[in-house]
Each structure stands twice: as C-alpha cells, then as structure tokens.
C-alpha cells in the first residue's frame, strides 16, 4: 500500500447546515388552560400553589415542594418590572424583534412570581421598578402562546 504524502498546509473543509427539530409539545392541563386564557379571554391567570403563592405563568405543581394542583387566580395585566435586559443588537431567528428591545421580568399585580416578557418602546425610560401594562395581539391573531401578550408598555 502506497503512503500518501500529507500536504504541508490543509485548507479546512466545512459545511453550513441548519438543523430543524419540528417539535409538537403537549402543554398539559395547567399550561394549556393558562394559554387558552390569553387567547380566548385576554386574561392572565395564575395558580396559587403550595409554598409559592400565586405563580404566573403557572405550572401544574409547586416548584418548591412539587405538590400538584392549586387554585386559579386572575391577576392584573399591570405590574412592576423586577429585571431589565436591554438588547441593542437583536439576534436573527431567535429574538422577538429586529429593532432594539428589552427583555423584562414583570411581577404582575396579584402575583407572587415574575413573568419573563419584552418591552418594545420607550426603552430610555425603562428600569427596575417601572410600572408596565400588557398589550395584546389583536383578536383573531392570538394563537395560544405566551406571545399572545404582544409586549409590555410603560405606564405613566
């Protein structure tokens, strides 16, 4: 068998590829009803669970002690910002806006936990402690996802 001489330099070989995973995720009872509330009622529901208080958005169990079940509680669509991350250069194919925007955590009035969402406008006035209100995707365009809340806007 003949030896093949290795070249002194080797041009790297590469291939770009987009890998797609078309998942269909089952929501379960609690997440599914919460999302239906956004879509069909334009209401934000929390679940009062063991040792966590009113959790928004809810899971079907307490994250603290894993006890199942709870009591549905409607919370307000207004709340206070507890954390802000201002994105100056949005990432294509991942971020929900192609213009600068902010991720926020919002503790809605009546909730004991905070919801992760976005603020799209008046970012210069946004800070921890800001009061915000949910804005909704129009009727007929809500799909039963967390993005049925379009964004949060600063309340003066």
């Amino acid at each position: 068998m003949k030896t093949f001489p290795k070249p002194a330099t080797i041009e790297p070989m590469s291939q770009r590829m987009n890998v797609e995973f078309p998942y269909k995720r089952s929501t379960g009872e609690v997440v599914g009803r919460f999302l239906a509330g956004l879509r069909d009622q334009k209401k934000i529901w929390g679940l009062r669970v063991s040792r966590q208080g009113v959790v928004v958005p809810p899971q079907s169990y307490s994250e603290v002690d894993a006890k199942a079940g709870g009591e549905w509680v409607e919370v307000a669509e207004t709340g206070v910002v507890t954390a802000v991350a201002e994105v100056t250069r949005p990432i294509e194919g991942l971020h929900p806006s192609s213009e600068p925007f902010a991720f926020v955590l919002v503790k809605l009035d009546g909730a004991d936990t905070a919801l992760a969402h976005v603020v799209l406008d008046r970012l210069d006035r946004l800070r921890v402690g800001s009061r915000v209100r949910a804005t909704w995707a129009p009727d007929g365009e809500r799909r039963g996802t967390i993005r049925d809340i379009e964004a949060f806007e600063i309340v003066d």
Binding site: Q15, F21, P22, Y23, R25, R33
Partner: peptide
C-alpha cells in the same frame, strides 16, 4: 385548553 405548541427549532451549524 390549548393542547399543543408547535416549536419549530431551527439551529444554525457550521461543521468542520
């Protein structure tokens, strides 16, 4: 309830 969420992941790679 909303029974399913379609999550179409699309991840870019550049394999060497």
């Amino acid at each position: 309830r909303v029974k399913y969420i379609d999550t179409n992941l699309n991840l870019p790679y550049h394999y060497y």
